[in-house]
């Protein structure tokens, strides 16, 4: 229970972990950032990327101060579900982890921790997203 005071901070980046198409689209929109040491704020996940690497990148992004939110496609989130849940249960509010639907797999709100909580308070939430509980 940390009483956090949020200060105005601009120039915050958006972190991204996802499949190639999602990352390409988002980078096209212009969220990509590569710093001097070649550190990226995005990660393309394909069949060659190890789960451990995803998790490591996720932790790296959460530790950064200049990241306001981390977008993670749901199938990637599934791979590192433990780390994602652990982070969302911690007292840290910034960055926010957002699960977005990926291109290949349809979005399932039942797996999203935030949606679970929303549905807890609003039973009609799941139905309006087109899912039977």
């Amino acid at each position: 229970m940390v009483k956090t005071k949020f200060v105005t901070q601009s120039d915050m980046k958006i972190g991204l972990i996802g499949d190639e198409d999602t990352v390409t689209g988002m980078l096209l929109a212009g969220i990509g950032h590569v710093d001097g040491q070649g550190k990226k704020n995005f990660l393309v996940v394909d069949s060659k990327v190890h789960i451990k690497d995803i998790e490591e990148h996720f932790h790296e992004l959460t530790a950064r101060k200049d990241i306001s939110m981390i977008l993670i496609t749901q199938d990637c989130a599934e791979l590192i579900r433990r780390a994602v849940d652990e982070f969302s249960h911690s007292a840290q509010m910034i960055p926010t982890v957002l699960e977005i639907p990926s291109k290949d797999t349809p979005y399932d709100p039942r797996k999203d921790g935030v949606m679970q909580r929303v549905a807890f308070f609003m039973p009609s939430a799941m139905a309006s997203l087109g899912v039977e509980i």
Binding site: T8, S10, D11, M12, I14, G30, V34
Partner: peptide, 11 residues
């Protein structure tokens, strides 16, 4: 990708 053209501001 080098410098982001889209950033966010938090207040």
């Amino acid at each position: 990708a080098k410098k982001p053209s889209v950033t966010t501001k938090m207040y």
